[in-house]
Design a protein around this nucleic acid. Structure first.
Length: 832
RNA sequence: GCCGAGGUGGCGGAAUGGCAGACGCAGCGGACUCAAAAUCCGCCGUGGGCGACCACGUGGGGGUUCGAGUCCCCCCCUCGGCACCA
């Protein structure tokens, strides 16, 4: 009987499901482990990236279950978002219909992979039963002042017809989903005050030992903390002033101009105070600059554009007058939107000044060197040095000058030292239909009024028709928009913006813990038992998106008192899996190098697919898909199948009592027993400690090869052989659960592998009977000897030096030194 | 420019400072077969030698060490992230 994966796999999937083998409940008697995977967006079908993600997750869950852990393991669907709307237009259907059909298909795919989820805990974020809690969280944040609405220059994607969060503008200023260059628009939008948590998000990074270093650095860069001084600059001959921020207050005496962003509110004030012609010039320039796309604006080293406003600023440090310019390289949404221009010590200011012929004053010199001549400078001197041209601060090294001038500014009341972050508040409103409605109304009398909690959910109207031009379908639902104000009862208008889908994915892992909970998003006692997530598996592309949002949400949830105060971080461990590559490129429909999961499973089975993807590469590195490699994995499973089938009679006839190592005399028996236990030992460590699944598979292949070439001759042989086969099946089962269950059953075992105990390596069987000792002469390998292990340094070198081969090798050479490493080698150093 | 991860056979990849290339893929040779597929056995870094063996070999150049893919310094290349952030 050949290896019939097509029959075996559905058989076991059905059995596990019917028996509820993977249902899990809190149990204080067992250690818990929360294994979490990034849940998929229901785009239509699982792809190879999913196969990799979920193979790693299922392996981990099964392995830990077998090791006595109570394992939380579920999945769900992140099912709101743009693609559903686009598909709805294209296929002339409704986003809900399209989404739910995809979910059905993908659920079947999950099952065909053999994933050991507790399906009772699954979530679909597009259903009211889930998104009502998005609304509930939003209201809590609104109450705490963490959610707010403001007018701001925001990122707008024309193709998606909506605004985007800062984190969703990627690369050189394009939309994360469709790649369209993003433009800035001034709009009223909803934000979450994630910046309130900037410092804590940064501080907690040090405690995230289980995260890859690179994700932590990416997050640190993203949060981007800098210490500096915010200070006031008065505008001469007016009652106006501007605030500026700098990290280099030590260069304050080097200011030769002040620059402000085109969107800075002061621009209008200055324009109004100008002569009509100048006014038009200023307003026109400001408008032109702010209408440019993010790509144009942020091109590094791009030509800087500026306009002199004609006004003068007063340098607080020395009373000097400098011109005020509008400059395109000043960003309104960082710092204060205005800077002090110090061209001698800032490259951007340097470039600007060289273009527009403004002056330059060096105020820092290199130690031991004279003050540089501005004329001969070819670039800004931004390195630390010694203050000069700076009055009484002359002679101070840069760090000290920063400190002293900062103190001086605070004493004089000119400014305050403060911390700036690159991180911006999270813009969560989207001008889209397929998302969670933001639960507020606009009332002419009461203003913005939150929907009372007992009226949640605010359901998305299902009869909306998605406009062909891609606009927000909610705008075409007058019956839905038109409502009564919950406060005064007058006619009011519903908010038609919906929430960013990243809102949904920021807390779904809490919902798994309390499926169906109607009173709260989750039950605190469930979170107390299960949180935090012990291992989170997913792609690195979420390093500065979902993984920051989820950390923020967890801190908010903790501050709301829904989890114990010590749970400040959601994910203790993080495994960022590498991409799946084919023919040198990421799999994509446009390149036509996509491999279909259903087809792979039909042709080779899920066990083969899982085995290949776990074997081909370590989990965090990118993986080359190879059709030949898949066949190799399939071939290996065929060998395992034959190993059991062809030895069935002998395996069934073997005595149930296992022989201890000490009872075995014969070398063949001892070697096999040692192979079995060293395999168990290595595989256990590879999975548990190193997460090197590829080498674990290699070890299992070696064991299989060893078992296949072993021919049992007596009962002791048969017992060892059976022990080996059982160990192989136990250790292989988290990788390839179906075939292992099948063969395990054929061996007459009563308990399923899914609920069996992981084997333990017998320390007695790990000890070697003899070791290979290498003779090196001057570090080069010359001879090998078999010797008993555990010899002392002296004993080992004496024995090796006494060997005939050694003496022959050393003839005519003068021995200078002998290095002896027990159980390893002897290195003889000779004179040339 | 800054930060991070890498660079090992034809390929994917192994190697607590101690036998480089485990395991697999591809390839070559053989067995079985009328034949093919499947399967099984053997070979498989480069150069030299009939051979036991010898020399060279982990991006390049130095260094530490009895001994370096592994540690230190300099350089080159690839990939990823951030970047007019004051």
């Amino acid at each position: 009987m050949a290896y019939e994966f097509g029959a075996i796999e559905p058989k076991w999937q059905k059995r596990w499901e019917e028996a509820g083998s993977f249902h899990v409940e809190s149990d204080d008697a067992k250690p818990k482990f929360y294994c979490l995977e990034m849940f998929p967006y229901p785009s239509g079908a699982l792809h190879m990236g999913h196969l990799r993600n979920y193979s790693i997750g299922d392996l981990t869950a099964r392995f830990l279950r077998m090791n006595g852990y109570n394992v939380m393991y579920s999945t769900g669907f992140d099912s709101f978002g743009m693609p559903a709307e686009n598909a709805a237009i294209k296929m002339k259907t409704h986003p809900a219909k399209w989404t739910l059909r995809n979910i059905d298909h993908m659920t079947a795919q999950f099952k065909s992979m053999g994933c050991s989820y507790d399906w009772r805990r699954t979530v679909k974020t597009c259903l009211p039963d889930y998104y009502r809690w998005n609304q509930w969280f939003f209201l809590q944040m609104l109450k705490k002042g963490l959610a707010y609405r403001k007018h701001a220059p925001v990122n707008w994607c024309e193709t998606c017809g909506t605004v985007l969060a800062n984190e969703q503008v990627i690369g050189d200023g394009v939309c994360w989903r469709c790649g369209t260059p993003v433009v800035k628009k001034g709009l009223d939008q909803w934000f979450l005050r994630i910046t309130d948590y900037a410092q804590e998000l940064l501080d907690c990074i040090d405690g995230l030992d289980g995260w890859p270093e690179r994700v932590l650095t990416m997050q640190k860069n993203w949060i981007g903390k800098s210490l500096g001084v915010r200070f006031n600059i008065e505008i001469a001959l007016t009652d106006l002033s501007i605030e500026a921020f700098t990290t280099r207050i030590d260069t304050i005496f080097g200011i030769t101009f002040v620059a402000i962003a085109a969107e800075h509110p002061i621009v209008n004030e200055l324009a109004e105070r100008s002569a009509p012609e100048k006014r038009d010039e200023i307003l026109d320039f400001a408008r032109r600059m702010s209408n440019r796309s993010a790509i144009e604006r942020t091109a590094v080293g791009g030509d800087k554009m500026g306009l002199d406003t004609g006004f003068k600023a007063i340098n607080p440090a020395n009373g000097g007058l400098v011109p005020i310019w509008i400059a395109d390289y000043i960003l309104m949404d960082y710092g204060t939107g205005a800077i002090m221009g110090v061209p001698a010590h800032d490259q951007r200011d340097f470039d600007f000044v060289r273009k527009y012929g403004l002056g330059m004053i060096p105020v820092v010199r290199r130690e031991g060197e004279p003050i540089p001549d501005p004329e001969s400078m070819t670039s800004a001197a931004d390195a630390d040095g010694i203050a000069c041209n700076s009055g009484r601060f002359d002679g101070l090294p840069t760090p000290e000058a920063i400190e002293r001038i900062g103190e001086w500014f605070e004493e004089k009341g000119w400014g305050t030292r403060e911390t700036q972050y690159r991180l911006r508040d999270w813009l969560i409103s989207r001008q889209r239909y397929w998302g969670t409605p933001i639960p507020v109304v606009y009332c002419d009398h009461c203003g913005i009024v939150p929907i009372p909690e007992d009226q949640l959910p605010v359901e998305l109207p299902m009869d909306a028709v998605i406009p062909e031009n891609g606009g927000n379908a909610l705008l075409n639902c007058p019956d839905w928009i038109d409502t009564a104000c919950p406060r005064c009862g007058a006619r009011a208008r519903r908010e038609t913006d919906t929430m960013d889908t990243f809102f949904c994915s920021s807390w779904y892992f809490f919902r798994y813990l309390s499926p169906g909970s109607g009173e709260a998003p989750f039950r605190p006692e469930d979170a107390r038992y299960w949180m935090p997530v012990d291992l989170y598996i997913g792609g690195i592309e979420h390093a500065c998106l979902h993984l920051i949002y989820a950390r923020f949400f967890t801190k908010v949830i903790s501050d709301l008192g829904l989890v114990p105060p010590d749970v400040r971080e959601p994910f203790t461990g993080l495994l960022t899996q590498g991409m799946v590559i084919k023919d040198g490129a990421k799999m994509s429909k446009s390149l036509g190098n996509v491999v279909d999961l259903d087809e792979i499973i039909r042709k080779y089975g899920a066990d083969t697919a899982r085995l290949f993807i776990l074997f081909a590469s370590p989990p965090d590195k990118s993986l080359d898909w190879s059709d030949k490699g898949v066949e190799g994995a399939n071939r290996f499973l065929g060998r395992v199948h034959r190993l059991v089938e062809e030895n069935m009679a002998s395996l069934l006839a073997s005595p149930r009592r296992r022989a201890a190592m000490s009872e075995l005399q014969d070398d063949g028996k001892r070697d096999l027993k040692r192979l079995i236990h060293s395999t168990i030992d290595r595989v256990t460590r590879d999975i548990r400690d190193e997460r090197q699944f590829n080498t674990a598979v290699a070890r299992l292949m070696e064991l299989c090869n060893g078992l296949a070439s072993f021919k049992p001759r007596d009962d002791t042989d048969r017992a060892i052989h059976r022990e080996g086969v059982e160990s192989l099946l136990l250790c292989l089962s988290p990788f390839c659960p179906h075939i292992c269950e099948e063969l395990w059953e054929m061996l007459g075992s009563e308990e399923w592998l899914a609920v069996s105990r992981w084997p333990e390596a017998d320390p007695d069987a790990l000890k070697a009977d003899c070791v290979t000792i290498v003779l090196q002469i001057n570090g080069k390998l010359r001879e090998q000897f078999r010797m008993t292990p555990g010899l002392s340094r002296e004993e080992l070198s004496n024995r090796v030096m006494a060997m005939d081969e050694t003496r022959a090798r050393l003839e005519g050479l003068e021995v200078v030194k002998i290095i002896s490493v027990p159980d390893k080698l002897v290195n003889v150093v000779t004179k040339k």
